[in-house]
Computed example of a mutant assay.
Amino acid sequence: MDSKYAQRPQRVRLPQIHIGTPPELLHGLKLIIPVLLFLVSFSPPLKRCLLHLKNRRFYKINEINRFNLVISLTDLCMSLSSLYLDAFYACAKAGHFTQAANLIHITQSALSQRIAKLEDELGTTLFVRLSSGIKLTPAGEELLRYCKSREALERDCLGKIRGNHNKQLQGVIRIGGFSSIMRSAVLPALTPLLKKNPHLKLQMLSKEMDELPTLLRRGEIDYMIHYNEWVKDDIETRLLGNERNICVERSGYRGPEVFLDHDENDQTTAKYLKMIKSKKSYERRYLDDVYGLIDGVKNGIGRAIVPEHLIQSERKIRIVDDKNVLHFPVIMHFYKQPYYTELHTHIIQHLELGVPKILGTN
């Protein structure tokens, strides 16, 4: 572009828009957006003006007839800098400015400036600075999900453009859930997908129930398996089946009334005894996870309420009462996206097909 035109953006005349019916509005936007993009790229004062309008909330056009449009002038005119987003993403993953600067090979000062400029453009704080590092704010958590979606979509798009002749999927499956379901059901359900696509990476986390929503919200996992449905407008859920929990003991057990739980907050035994209306007093022992409970039962140190599918091949264990079953739903959660990658589609398909078979609820 000739420099003499770049120096005089004020001479460009903006076409007038008559905001009436939705078609007229959309036609007007098609005309004005390229001009605004040009002006913003060469005129810092106009950019500051638009940011001022954004902060004053003068730019929104809400619910125009049946289209229910919400249009942000600054969003239409300016896109977030890739440099700023890469700096933010590195910080979010590293949890510390120094480590993030090393990841993207820039100085810590340059990294801090990029984060400050990004926060200035967005008009919000993305990190809370702590003595131990940095922590994402709710706005930062939202932007992190955007960065991860952007990364996944870019990988998906480039694979299609470059022509993946082997038709193999690439990317990372980040999934977290409770211990009784991850190794026994989720991993076997995903195994065919992983074998067919050797470049796929897998990150599985087994955590307590109360820890999982935080991991999903912070973007540390993309899929969460939970007993309880997390009802939110931006969350999608899939019921993968029901886990059947039964009371078991070692064959020939004659010990005291002792039940094994994960920890003192584990309410599984209490729920089971309430369901069968038992009022007997009992002692508790804690063995961390479900596999610890099974080992404890086999060693004869107490009874436990465990998923039926985990003890079917255990010869040393017997079912105390096969008529009373405590059911827990197995629900998968993930954030809604405007577009889902091919990898996401395959993950959902394999889990919805494989997990119910393993649980015996298909």
Rank of each mutant, 00 (worst) to 15 (best):
M1E: 08
K4S: 12
L14N: 04
I19H: 05
P22K: 06
E24K: 02
L29I: 01
K30T: 06
L31V: 00
I32P: 01
I33E: 11
P34V: 03
L37G: 15
C49V: 12
L53D: 13
K54E: 13
R56E: 15
F58S: 14
I61T: 12
I61M: 13
I64F: 14
V70Q: 12
L73S: 04
C77F: 09
S79Q: 05
L83M: 03
Y84Q: 15
D86V: 01
A90T: 02
C91P: 00
A92F: 03
H96I: 12
Q99I: 12
A101E: 00
L103D: 12
Q113Y: 04
R114M: 00
A116T: 06
L130K: 11
G133Q: 00
T137W: 01
T137G: 01
L143W: 00
L153I: 12
E154D: 10
C157T: 14
G159L: 00
H165Q: 13
H165I: 13
L169V: 01
L169D: 01
I173W: 03
R174F: 03
I175T: 10
F178K: 09
V186C: 03
A189Y: 01
L193M: 07
L202M: 07
S206G: 11
E208W: 07
E211A: 07
I225N: 02
N228W: 08
D234E: 12
L239T: 07
G241W: 10
C247E: 10
G252V: 02
F259C: 06
H262R: 15
T268K: 00
K271N: 08
Y272R: 05
L273E: 02
K280Q: 12
S281I: 13
Y282M: 06
D288E: 07
G296P: 03
G296K: 00
I305N: 02
H309F: 01
L310Y: 02
S313T: 12
I317G: 04
D321F: 10
N324H: 03
P329N: 09
Y335H: 11
Y335K: 12
Q337A: 11
Y339E: 14
Y340A: 11
Y340E: 15
Y340G: 06
E342V: 09
E342N: 14
L343C: 07
L343H: 06
T345C: 05
